[in-house]
Design a protein around this nucleic acid. Structure first.
Lengths: 125, 125
DNA sequence: TTGCATTTACGAAATCGTTCGTATATGTTT
DNA sequence: AAACATATACGAACGATTTCGTAAATGCAA
């Protein structure tokens, strides 16, 4: 049911998820550190997102305050499944092995993942 | 260096990776089982892909035979990193935990992943 | 050979996402 | 109040992707 945000929309959502409710200016300030992007461009995108229902906004003051209307977990879930199907022919474990294989995961994180696996193995009858 | 294929291009690549060298008709037959898609649409896409260098084709017979020119692993790698950055703020382990948490991974696969983790832990000093 | 089916080639249209110029409204400062 | 800064609204333009109609080439069958 969660629709897939576009790439630019995801950029904006990422900021909102991390910073919490924000104005267009605040979002644009963060984004323009990463990439060249005009204020009205960000504004327009956020307006479209509001229209789509991806974000909601408080219009009570002149400078509107936007906040995400979809949860990060849901979007992650949606995009992850999409990628698994699109590039890994549906095999989540293949994706996991690829992700781990890049050596960017710390020992502590590996431990944490191992714990999760053991827990999952326990649950399965 | 591996450019990112579009969604439709990825659909086609998936078929080629799985079935090996194929004609437009063969690819379209598979794809049209999943989604409504006309023959000439698939043809056009594959022609564009050939032009981009994403696939190569053997034109020696009348019905051209296409095969992938980029490796599945490379594309997986590219798209995975993109997703990690875009939706998981760069944390691969977060992505892995999400992927495993969906309960679609069999016990055997979990075992395999655990082995990989232990191997990785051994490598790290 | 004539006609039919299949294939490729080409180009135009439709859609989607993104960018930005400009107008208008609102609030602030002098 | 006038000038200025800041914000939203709107629409147009652009580029990329996708879809498809139509023509031309090729091979096969009657």
């Amino acid at each position: 049911m969660t629709q897939k945000p576009t790439e630019s929309e995801l950029d904006i959502l990422r900021v909102l998820w991390q910073k919490g409710p924000s104005t267009v200016r605040e979002v644009n300030e963060i984004l323009s550190q990463e990439k060249e992007t005009g204020y009205t461009t960000t504004l327009k995108l956020m307006q479209i997102m509001a229209q789509k229902g991806i974000v909601t906004r408080d219009e009570s003051s002149r400078t509107h305050v936007y906040k995400p209307a979809i949860e990060q977990k849901n979007v992650q879930h949606t995009l992850l499944n999409k990628l698994v199907d699109a590039a890994f022919s549906g095999s989540a474990s293949q994706l996991v092995m690829q992700a781990l294989g890049q050596g960017k995961t710390s020992k502590a994180e590996l431990e944490e993942i191992k714990k999760l696996i053991e827990q999952l193995e326990g649950e399965q009858k």
